[in-house]
């Protein structure tokens, strides 16, 4: 059965609360106070930020990584881990 994030009747609820996986419905991106900003010039593509990001929000690319902000909570691990200081935490907004 399909996934119904906002059920409007009993029939929308599956028996035993067995829901389809892979549906992150809350955009945790708006939790951020600081956001990671990537300096593409400095990025050596070592992928440490990629592997450490708890949210899987850093995408691997050919030359350097790319940050997606949909679910990024701004924890700053990527900036902390980056050996070449290519990621800086900047205040939101």
């Amino acid at each position: 059965m399909g996934f119904i994030p906002n059920p409007s009747k009993l029939g929308d609820l599956p028996a035993g609360a067995a829901f389809e996986g892979g549906h992150p419905t809350t955009q945790t991106g708006n939790w951020r106070v600081f956001q990671p900003v990537l300096d593409k010039e400095k990025c050596k593509n070592c992928l440490l930020c990629w592997v450490f990001c708890p949210e899987g929000m850093i995408k691997r690319q050919e030359k350097c990584v790319e940050i997606s902000y949909d679910f990024c909570k701004g924890c700053g691990i990527c900036a902390n881990e980056c050996p070449s200081k290519a990621i800086a935490m900047a205040k939101e907004g």
Binding site: P24, T26, T28, W31, R32, F52, C53, P54, E55, G56, M57, K59, R60, D70, F71, K73, G74, C75, G76, I77
Partner: peptide
């Protein structure tokens, strides 16, 4: 590259999720 776990409600920077 495939992410089998993302978009959780964990605290920002949760070690367990990593």
């Amino acid at each position: 590259q495939e992410e089998l776990l993302y978009g959780t409600m964990a605290c920002a920077g949760c070690g367990g999720i990593i």
